[in-house]
Amino acid sequence: MLTKFLSHVGRFILMLMGMLSKPENRKVYWKEFMHQCNDIGFRSLPIVLIISTFLGAVMTLQSAYQLVSPVIPRYVIAQIVRDSTILELAPTMICVVLAGVVGSKIASELGNMRISEQIDALEIMGINTKSYLIMPKIVAALFMVPCLIILAIVISMVGGYAAGSMTGTVLPDQFHYGLTTDFVPFNMYVALAKSFTFAFIISTIPAYYGYHVEGGALEIGRSSTTSVVVSCITILLADYGITALMLSNG
């Protein structure tokens, strides 16, 4: 099992090293980059907006339910929602969802190209397929996923504000005061660090499994499923590592 794991790691590193070459045609690469930005970013907007809205709303109501002591001011609920969303909920939960939505698409797309011998045809024409097919996906993910996370953080605050106002658990003035009180800018740097790290994981691991798939249509499905599982586990491990570093520097 260790040998198999090290083999995957070695092939993964070789794939990343193989894509680091100068683009043959910048216009073609730019077109592919914009196409991937649309697929990874804009097509993921609906699910990100829906999850973020209910994430903030549920977090607000759950915090209000647990803070039963009259000694604790109500604006603390907004602080809990703000810090929890920025540090953990928005980056981790949204990226786990994106690992399923975006990661499975990347793995299936590359796997289908491998099985139908499109990748082999591109290589015969002298095209660096790793650079042409994989690098635009990684760059687009590194650009779009942090933008989606920032948007998710904002929408979660709005969802929490709306839920608190409609249910009367937190008054609008209290919620606004809680959002702006004792804010630590370092938390945003941690959220962005997680976003870039998770974006790299979401784009590279499914690309690896899709690019190296062998067999037929059944193997494409298995490769896509495996890539999502490995991506989610890696995201959780990276989340723990970044959080541990945050605590050690705090």
Rank of each mutant, 00 (worst) to 15 (best):
K105Y: 08
L171P: 00
F12L: 13
E88H: 12
D39N: 10
M93H: 00
M34I: 12
Q66S: 12
L98Q: 06
G241C: 09
M19W: 11
G216C: 02
E32C: 00
T167R: 02
L148N: 12
G178C: 05
D83E: 14
V9C: 12
G100H: 11
I40H: 00
E117R: 15
G250L: 15
Y75D: 10
K27V: 13
S52P: 01
A199T: 08
C37S: 08
Y29T: 07
Y177E: 11
Q118G: 00
G103A: 08
T53N: 01
G168D: 05
F175Y: 15
V81M: 04
A193K: 13
I201R: 02
L45V: 14
V76R: 07
L247M: 12
E219Y: 04
T225P: 00
T3Y: 10
K105F: 10
I242P: 09
L20Y: 03
H212L: 10
H35Y: 10
P136H: 03
A191W: 08
I106E: 06
V190K: 14
L133W: 05
S7Y: 14
T243S: 15
G18K: 04
T60R: 01
W30T: 13
S203Y: 02
V101Y: 13
L20K: 04
K4Y: 09
G41C: 03
I201W: 02
P146N: 09
I80P: 00
G41L: 02
G210C: 02
T204N: 02
T226F: 03
L20E: 07
I242S: 06
S21V: 15
C147V: 15
G250V: 13
T169Y: 11
G41E: 03
L245I: 15
L142V: 12
G216N: 11
A207G: 04
M15S: 06
E219N: 08
I86Q: 05
C95Y: 05
K194S: 12
V71Y: 08
G159S: 04
T226V: 11
A99C: 11
A162T: 12
G160H: 03
V229W: 00
V158A: 06
L179F: 04
Y211T: 01
S224I: 07
A99W: 01
P185S: 07
M166Y: 11
G210I: 05
I86E: 03
G100Y: 10
I106T: 10
K137Y: 02
D39M: 10
I150E: 05
A162C: 10
P206L: 05
C37F: 05
I202M: 06
Y209D: 02
V229R: 09
L192V: 15
D239Y: 01
T181Q: 14
T169G: 01
M166P: 00
Y29R: 07
V213I: 13
S224E: 01
S231C: 12
K27E: 12
K31Y: 07
I202Y: 07
P185C: 08
I149T: 12
L110A: 09
L122W: 06
N112Q: 12
T181E: 11
M1W: 12
L245Q: 09
F33I: 07
S84W: 03
G103P: 08
I86K: 05
I13V: 15
F12G: 07
L133D: 05
V101E: 03
H176Y: 08
L122T: 04
H212I: 03
V97P: 01
Y240D: 01
I77C: 02
F198S: 04
C37M: 14
M144I: 10
R11P: 00
Y208V: 09
H8N: 14
G241Q: 06
